[in-house]
């Protein structure tokens, strides 16, 4: 079997699936793993942009499925890291161009040669999501600490459960704002876990650097930059490989310390 096929999905759009997929892929590759990313969002491809590989695409997923090229020809190698490839989505077609069976067949061709196959699922619960879910060994649900995102995540978890193959599911909470949580203006990690009762894989704090790096096509985890978000994503990558990295209060405690320091400074200025 070889590779583990991990589908990254959310239900709701705009919670940071694609960015998380790109950064996780880079982080896993930096840990010495062989990684392929598949963009399953056919017609609305983004992963190539976030990874900065847009200009190197020749063939895409639909070309492979329809036999216009070999699988290897469509895969774009990221030269900045040892073993990272992207299988881009087609931009000119729609999701019905690929079937769930195609996805299973495609991933089984790749399984032997890689450690991780990450599939970036489109938002929604329709065809594209079905395509992304079909070959999954595991599912990572990305959500934000907001009622609507959590509601959609719950729906998605229900759909994954209804698949009947007992696919392990874990949760990443993205864009957490420790300050807002502390003030009670944002759902806390525990609030989210309370509702979703799904194992927590990690919490990624809100980080402006993520937006900057996505725009440049330069995933944060690429250079050994230490921002709160990149650290959190690296931790998640380590957890995926089986390392025991404690989750949790870390971000919140850090925030607490910063806040206390900030308060100190403010007081000394006054």
């Amino acid at each position: 079997m070889g590779a583990r096929v991990i589908t990254i999905t959310s239900g709701k759009g705009g919670v940071g699936k694609t960015t998380a997929t790109a950064n996780l892929a880079v982080a896993l590759a930096n840990l010495g793993k062989k990684v392929v990313c598949i963009d399953a969002d056919i017609g609305l491809r983004n992963l190539d942009v976030v990874m900065g590989l847009e200009n190197r695409i020749v063939y895409d997923l639909v070309d492979v499925v329809e036999g216009r090229c070999k699988l290897r020809q469509a895969m774009v190698k990221d030269k900045r890291v040892p073993d990272l490839y992207l299988l881009p989505a087609a931009q000119t077609r729609d999701k019905t161009a690929v079937s769930p069976q195609d996805m299973v067949a495609l991933t089984s061709q790749l399984r032997g040669d890689y450690d991780y196959i990450l599939i970036d699922s489109p938002a929604g619960i329709e065809w594209g999501f079905r395509n992304a879910l079909a070959p999954a060994d595991e599912v990572i649900i990305i959500t934000n600490p907001e009622a609507s995102a959590v509601r959609d995540a719950d729906r998605i978890i229900g759909l994954v459960e209804a698949e009947g193959r007992k696919i392990p599911t874990s949760l990443v909470i993205n864009r957490a704002k420790p300050d807002m949580i502390r003030r009670g203006d944002m759902l806390s990690v525990n609030d989210v876990l309370d509702i979703l009762s799904t194992p927590l894989l990690g919490v990624i704090p809100d980080d402006e650097q993520i937006i900057v790096s996505s725009n440049r096509g330069n995933p944060l985890t690429l250079d050994n930059q230490k921002t709160p978000a990149s650290e959190a994503i690296r931790d998640i990558a380590r957890r995926i490989t089986g390392a025991k990295v404690p989750i949790g209060e870390l971000e919140r405690k850090k925030g607490g310390l910063f806040r206390r320091l900030a308060r100190l400074f403010r007081r000394s200025k006054a």
Partner: peptide, 8 residues
């Protein structure tokens, strides 16, 4: 015997 999620 399980949690009923959104949409079920």
């Amino acid at each position: 015997k399980r949690t009923l999620r959104n949409g079920r």
